[in-house]
């Protein structure tokens, strides 16, 4: 959605999203699709990141959009509309897990932040090209999506918001209710784990054993 802004008669900057919301609240409900249309993917992927099932994630995303409509008057513009929408989607997904699979919800709640531990990346061969054409192959997309699913929840949600949805660190911190420092730490772990998971799978890189690696040497040569 365009973020075009202009100055109204009251000299206040009003963006298109705010105008749309005002018109919807004033009775033009048919504009709601226009308001939420740019956020279909972000809401769906956020739901999918917790639910791991496409049909359930789609249903959850639809419910989140309807819940956002019901509560639109409560959106005060203190955060971005997208952040508010994503929070609703994540809460909706968590509610579904709590209702349908309470044992799974327990594990979400007890997710441990491994900030203090050190992550040791695997020593892999080069993977220097950007293989975007590889995405034409469905199996490559599946490998990537499955790799994201294997990330611990606290890393997965940060990775989805920051790298899949391209939100900035501040927005991700606001949505998840943690500091920007925590977001950065979790993002680093998530990216390293994703690289370790995907580099061998996509490029068929050789995986070298850690004990052979010593600082300042190049054992892979």
């Amino acid at each position: 959605m365009s973020t075009t802004s202009f100055m109204n008669a009251g000299e206040r900057i009003v963006d298109e999203t705010t105008i749309l919301i005002r018109r919807i609240l004033a009775g033009e409900s048919e504009l709601y699709y226009k308001l939420i249309s740019p956020y279909q993917r972000v809401v769906y992927v956020c739901a999918l990141s917790l639910l791991h099932n496409e049909a359930e994630a789609e249903d959850c995303a639809q419910d989140a959009f309807l819940k956002a409509y019901e509560n639109l008057a409560e959106f005060k513009g203190e955060s971005k509309f997208s952040s508010w929408l994503i929070r609703i989607a994540l809460n909706e997904a968590k509610m579904r897990i709590r209702k349908l699979r309470p044992e799974k919800y327990e594990s979400l709640d007890k997710a441990v932040d491994l900030n203090d531990g050190e992550y040791m990346p695997q020593t892999l061969g080069d993977w220097r090209e950007i293989p975007s054409e590889a995405l034409e192959r469905k199996e490559v997309r599946m490998v990537i999506e499955n790799a994201v699913k294997t990330l611990p929840k606290i890393y997965r949600e940060v990775f989805i918001l920051r790298d899949v949805q391209n939100l900035n660190v501040a927005a991700a911190a606001e949505i998840l209710g943690v500091s920007e420092g925590v977001i950065k730490t979790r993002l680093l772990r998530a990216r390293m784990q994703m690289r370790d998971l995907l580099a061998p799978a996509i490029k068929n890189s050789r995986v070298f054993s850690r004990p052979g690696f010593k600082k300042g040497t190049n054992p892979w040569l």
Binding site: I130, S132, D163, M194, L198
Partner: peptide, 9 residues
């Protein structure tokens, strides 16, 4: 490698 991951996802 990490840059590639970011581009892909």
């Amino acid at each position: 490698g990490i840059h590639n991951i970011i581009v892909l996802v």
